[in-house]
Design a protein around this nucleic acid. Structure first.
Length: 572
DNA sequence: GCCGTTTTCGGCCCGACTGTTTTCAGTCG
């Protein structure tokens, strides 16, 4: 059982308790526990198996939750959750996922319109039944319909990080399988797309029958969908579908190419093959019956007169032309990253102190690390006012003075107010090493006003970086509406960087916008936005985005040495 | 339900906005 699944169950308990209008602090406890579980670097299953470990020693997890986690690990569910399921339709928590619908509205919809699922909700909204309810109106009904649309767009797909967690335990299993000669993961997972629909795993077996048997013994499999000579399809207990496909050595490269995709990239490659009277499929390039290539990907590309193209670029967004012209980018790699440029501490809504975060950053071999707590407008995070901010910076610098080999940067994530003004005084911000400016509130301005707002902040002269620029949360919150071209242009002109926020559910700026911003002359940063030491591990997700966005080391501030960074961001 | 402790109880983040009301509940972050 994966941590993500356990976290999901804890969240579900919280959802159901919320619908029951249970004690809000109890609900919060479950949410906190869920967050802890989700962010754990180790698997709970392993921790629970260790005699030395007490789950209740983990933050936000006490005896009661530890007991429930053990129950879940043991039985796949717990009594508390089962009891709640008896009281409440199981589809009702999903109704709360719709933007604008919280527990109160969900329970009212259930009581008055017998709504117990997203389907019910959609039907009622389309029929105009919802606007009739007390406390609801036409706008709410419209908002619900829009929220349903957003949800359905990405439904059934997992965040890359969640898929990666599932893959991690599958990987361990595959590595231990004696009946396999070789295996690789392909598909959108290999391309590191932000969400993953299923996993494609390619296998070379010593004996397919034996390998199939061994695969099906994997304890995480909840359902075997398909079982044949060439392929085995299963569903894991977390819902993720995995396709295992058998190949032989001579076609493995062609298979990797074919199953890595994207479909559009494959079609473009096949077109090149067809132009030469060849055929390209998952078994190789063929001239008649003769195999010209197929053993490895490089060989297939080479036959097509192309250099090997990194999987992240295979979206048919110009990579084949670039490859033809010898102009493929040298993509930034995890090893190029020398520091992290957004993080939080207990001074606002983080979980670790300045010293703890600094040490964790240093342990990762970083040569610089920015602490950027929230400003006062972000009340839920207990953001800092001007005085707090100055004092906090002093503390950061004190810790920095005791550090060797890493520059601990005194920074802030200042809120961009509705007007475009910043939430802290310019003279406060000028004293800091690093200023990230982000929008957290008033997200519904029209496009023109939102553009003006962001541009005004960018032109303030005191901002180094625009944080999570689109403000989107994958599958949950739509991006802010603004003119990206104008904003990117303003950033380039004012020497303001654009952040790639590496939080797995943000990935903001998205890969798709990176090239647009780069073309406008913008410089990038990657920030994990870590709220705990474990959060620093999100860096790799940010690097994935940068790679998918065609970015090279030279496009990203995090690849500079501390000395060069200091010079680069020095205030005039 | 967790946590810390003045160690077994009391505190736990709270302000702004929206759409609905007619003074505010619900939602969000």
């Amino acid at each position: 059982m994966e941590n993500a699944q356990i976290a999901d169950m804890l969240d579900e308990i919280a959802d159901l308790l919320e619908l029951k209008e249970a004690n809000e602090f109890r609900i919060r406890s479950y949410r906190n526990a869920s967050r802890t579980v989700r962010g754990l670097p180790e698997r709970l299953e392993d921790l629970a198996a260790d005699e030395e470990q007490d789950l209740a020693d983990l933050p936000n997890i006490g005896d009661s939750t530890a007991e429930k986690i053990r129950e879940i690990l043991d039985k796949g569910t717990c009594q508390r959750l089962e009891d709640l399921h008896k009281e409440m339709p199981s589809g009702l928590p999903a109704v709360m996922r719709v933007e604008g619908v919280g527990p109160k509205k969900a329970i009212q919809l259930h009581k008055e319109l017998d709504i117990g699922s997203l389907d019910d909700l959609k039907k009622a909204a389309e029929a105009g039944d919802i606007r009739q309810l007390e406390g609801f109106g036409e706008k709410t009904e419209q908002k619900i319909l829009k929220g349903l649309e957003t949800l359905s767009k990405t439904s059934g797909r997992l965040l890359f990080k969640d898929a990666a967690d599932h893959f991690e335990s599958l990987r361990r299993r595959l590595e231990g399988m004696k009946s396999l000669k070789k295996w690789e993961v392909a598909g959108s997972f290999r391309r590191t797309k932000e969400t993953i629909g299923d996993l494609d795993v390619l296998l070379i077996a010593k004996d397919r029958g034996e390998a199939t048997g061994e695969l099906l013994e994997y304890e995480e499999i909840s359902e075997t969908i398909d079982k044949g000579e060439e392929k085995v399809t299963v569903r894991l207990s977390g819902g993720l579908q995995v396709d295992f496909r058998f190949f032989e050595e001579e076609s493995f490269g062609a298979a990797m190419l074919y199953f890595t995709g994207s479909k559009a990239h494959n079609i473009a490659l096949r077109r090149i093959a067809v132009a030469r009277d060849w055929k390209l499929n998952e078994y190789g390039i063929f001239k008649g019956d003769r195999r010209l290539a197929g053993k490895d990907e490089e060989g297939v590309y080479k036959r097509l007169n192309l250099p090997w193209i990194p999987p992240e670029l295979r979206e048919d967004r110009g990579e084949i032309d670039a490859a033809n012209a010898g102009e493929l980018p040298t993509l930034v790699a995890p090893g190029d990253i020398r520091g992290d440029l957004q993080s939080h501490t207990t001074a606002s809504d983080g979980e670790n102190s300045i010293g703890e975060m600094a040490r964790a950053a240093k342990d990762r071999g970083y040569s610089f690390f920015a602490i950027t707590d929230h400003s006062k407008r972000v009340t839920m995070a207990q953001g800092l006012d001007d005085d707090d901010c100055r004092r906090h910076a002093e503390k950061i610098r004190e810790v920095n003075d005791d550090l060797k080999g890493m520059w601990l940067m005194a920074g802030v994530e200042v809120d961009i107010l509705k007007s475009g003004k910043l939430d802290l005084k310019a003279e406060t911000l000028e004293q800091l090493d690093w200023v990230v400016a982000s929008i957290h509130y008033d997200r519904n301005l029209d496009r023109k006003k939102m553009t003006e707002r962001i541009v005004k902040a960018v032109e303030s002269g005191v901002v180094h970086c625009l944080g999570h620029p689109l403000g989107r949360v994958i599958a949950q919150r739509e991006p802010l509406a603004f003119d990206t071209a104008k904003v990117f242009e303003a950033c380039a002109e004012n020497d303001v960087c654009i952040e790639i926020n590496a939080q797995p559910d943000r990935l903001d700026l998205p890969d798709t916008h990176c090239r647009e911003a780069k073309a406008a002359g913008v410089m990038f940063t990657i920030g994990t936005d870590a709220h705990s030491t474990a959060g620093l591990d999100a860096m790799r997700f940010g690097v994935n985005v940068a790679r998918r966005g065609w970015l090279e080391a030279g496009d990203i501030l995090n690849t500079l040495t501390a000395t060069k960074l200091r010079k680069r961001i020095r205030r005039k």
